[in-house]
Write a protein that binds this DNA or RNA. Structure first.
Lengths: 187, 187
DNA sequence: TATGAATCGGAATTCCGGTTCCGAATATAC
DNA sequence: GTATATTCGGAACCGGAATTCCGATTCATA
């Protein structure tokens, strides 16, 4: 489902891109509240063409979410480059949330129930999780993050923040407050 | 929509109760993922009867959510009785989350987007919010809760926790951690 | 217990959006 | 330039679930 790269006719490859672009845009803006027909129209194609490239709506969404995960992974890699362990951790957390904010579909995927379609994404999720784990570990080892902080807590915090990204509530304030709580105070 | 109490034929009143019971049960367990027909069956009635009592599905759900808000309000009132301001605050927060945990529909209502149907519930929400505000204020005035803590922060924390009530994550841990962060340390 | 109004039941209808299908159009190979 | 395999388009199809409708039933009153 993910990458039938070569041996695609030129027009087909081009159209596939259009579909992905249109879908990314719409899913990001409206979550799952988007019709296949609308995606097709925006891509300048017919619905039939969507189904030639993706088995069904879930598969299409999964592909889009998978992309975002890849983006998150490179973001995490960038954070890992930072010399200061705390800076790396904070940059990861904030960068991740910042990127998630404008993508409703991604947030719903994280917050919502596990879906069968996510199977195709396990790899991307795992890759991301691995880096998170390293960054957390490093901050803990450096004595900058509470010793009992676990990678799961990263998930707790991020999901909590994402839940506050609709409406008027200020999720940054919430996260900042928590950062203060988990950072080991200067000795 | 809410309370056409008197002047209902005996069987009608009885059936209305059955509908509410069945709907509460099912919405709580499965969120919006419940068919009107299923509710009718479980109530031992035909779908037509549901519609005699509630204009449509949203109205029914709104009524159910409204009830839960009333329950939350009395829970809040109980917390307010507590002499110790911090105990009152903590009891409110934990009690609220504890009650919300088993009610998927309520959680989705809190986490999800504003719906038009919520209009019928404004009163209940407001009543609850008023008590929260008082309890928070009292704890702040007593110097037990950070001076910059606002009622909105209560919302941030609870929504964050609710977002972590699915899956395996441990929302209590998350909340506990935050409580430590916002409580004013012993002098 | 007879009468009429209120209520019920559930099959039929409606709506909505995903998915299929196949003739038309287009790209690539020869 | 023609042949052939791919790909495209979008009307038609389908399934699921909410909602309607009205004859059958039940309650309340005299």
């Amino acid at each position: 489902m993910s990458a039938p790269e070569r041996s695609l006719r030129a027009d087909a490859r081009r159209n596939r891109e259009s579909v992905i672009d249109a879908a990314s845009e719409l899913f990001a803006r409206r979550g799952d509240n988007v019709q296949m027909e609308e995606i097709a129209t925006r891509a300048g194609l017919g619905v039939g063409t969507l189904y030639r490239h993706f088995a069904d709506k879930r598969a299409l969404r999964a592909a889009i979410i998978g992309r975002r995960f890849e983006a998150m992974t490179s973001l995490a890699r960038a954070a890992e480059e930072l010399a200061d362990p705390w800076a790396a951790f904070e940059s990861l957390l904030l960068g991740y949330l910042e990127s998630a904010e404008p993508d409703v579909a991604f947030r719903l995927a994280i917050l919502g129930p596990e879906e069968a379609a996510w199977d195709d994404i396990v790899a991307q999720k795992t890759a991301f999780a691995a880096i998170v784990e390293r960054i957390v570990q490093r901050a803990v080892d450096a004595g900058l993050l509470r010793a009992d902080f676990r990678p799961d807590d990263f998930v707790l915090i991020t999901r909590g923040a994402m839940a506050n990204m609709s409406g008027t509530a200020d999720w940054r304030r919430h996260v900042t407050l928590q950062l203060e709580g988990i950072r080991v105070p200067e000795r």
